[in-house]
């Protein structure tokens, strides 16, 4: 499935829905969306990953970028990640830097 990243705002919460494969070729698009979200100074960043099928190191790099771009005061929630995507987050230790949630309502 082709990669897609859709940004939506509700009050000061930025919600990005990710689908497809987040790899080296799609990472720049994700980075653009992160930068777009950062322009509106959100208080919380929610990444919906239910439909994200693959996360390569390039994608992880953008997540690291997101954390540093948003700053320490903006909590990042990773929602619905599963399978190899969740495995990659856990093995690399990134899951300790964000909040992992099963559903958006929890976030």
């Amino acid at each position: 499935m082709a990669f897609d990243a859709q940004l939506a705002f509700k009050e000061k919460v930025a919600k990005i829905t990710l689908t497809g494969s987040l790899d080296a070729s799609s990472a720049p698009r994700f980075k653009e969306v992160i930068e777009e979200a950062a322009l509106q100074s959100p208080t919380k960043l929610v990444l919906l990953m239910d439909s994200l099928e693959f996360l390569a190191s390039a994608g992880l790099r953008v997540l690291i970028f997101a954390k540093q771009k948003m700053g320490a005061t903006v909590d990042i929630y990773v929602v619905g990640s599963q399978g190899p995507v969740l495995g990659t987050l856990e093995m690399s230790g990134f899951h300790h830097s964000v909040y992992i949630q099963d559903t958006y309502a929890d976030a």
């Binding site: 390569a56 190191s57 992880l60 690291i64 990659t88 093995m91 690399s92 230790g93 990134f94 300790h96």
Partner: peptide, 14 residues
Amino acid sequence: ATGRLGMQVDELKN
């Protein structure tokens, strides 16, 4: 654990 993904640097730093 992430060596096959080329992410050993991140894993060690973590």
